[in-house]
């Protein structure tokens, strides 16, 4: 089975690739729109600033290719910054438009909590009810911004960091966003990745 990992120059892909190979996938690194069309499963990883990431996706026309893939109901999983890019907009260093595959916005932690930012380390992500509740576990987080879906029904996981925030989101049964790093979260992370790709 094959999975395409979008390579747009934002952060380290080695961990994601290692994890996907370990759970039995053949990984293609994708940096052009026509490569997106060959895949029915896509991973959008990423670490860094939202605005810069969107500029990179736009300048390589990968943004449109990802939106097209979504319209064809292909599985798309955004991880960390990749999750945030799936949303409508972010207020990180100015206002930026996102891919808008999940309605909602991305906000900074600072101001919302007295706790140390970034939110770094292992923390619990719970899926309230339904088919994902069995995947509730501790996962590894490193982030300073968090997603706020417009529709409550798009929330997949929540986590407490001074307040309850959305640490996982979905749209339909093919778009998923994970704020934590499943590739760095031991068995719990690998198991969840497997489920989302299946």
């Amino acid at each position: 089975m094959k999975v395409g990992v979008v390579n747009y120059g934002m952060g380290n892909l080695a961990s994601v690739v290692n994890a996907l190979e370990f759970i039995g996938y053949t990984v293609d690194l994708i940096d052009a729109p026509e490569q997106v069309e060959k895949h029915s499963r896509l991973i959008l990883p990423g670490v860094g600033a939202f605005g810069k990431a969107m500029n990179r996706l736009r300048s390589s026309a990968l943004d449109k290719a990802i939106v097209n893939a979504s319209e064809q109901s292909k599985t798309i999983i955004g991880i960390c910054l990749g999750m945030q890019l799936l949303f409508s907009r972010s207020s990180e260093f100015g206002n930026h438009e996102g891919l808008n595959l999940i309605a909602g916005e991305v906000l900074p932690f600072s101001g919302e909590t007295d706790l140390r930012v970034p939110h770094l380390g292992w923390n619990e992500a719970r899926s309230p009810e339904g088919e994902f509740s069995e995947f509730s576990s501790d996962f590894y987080f490193v982030h300073s911004f968090y997603c706020v879906p417009t529709n409550e029904s798009d929330v997949l996981f929540t986590t407490n960091y001074g307040f309850e925030f959305c640490s996982g989101a979905k749209f339909g049964d093919h778009i998923y966003g994970l704020q934590f790093h499943p590739e760095k979260s031991q068995q719990a992370g690998l198991r969840l990745l497997k489920r989302l790709l299946s």
Partner: peptide
Amino acid sequence: IAKECFMP
């Protein structure tokens, strides 16, 4: 090390 290291 990294090949099968699924933790930070």
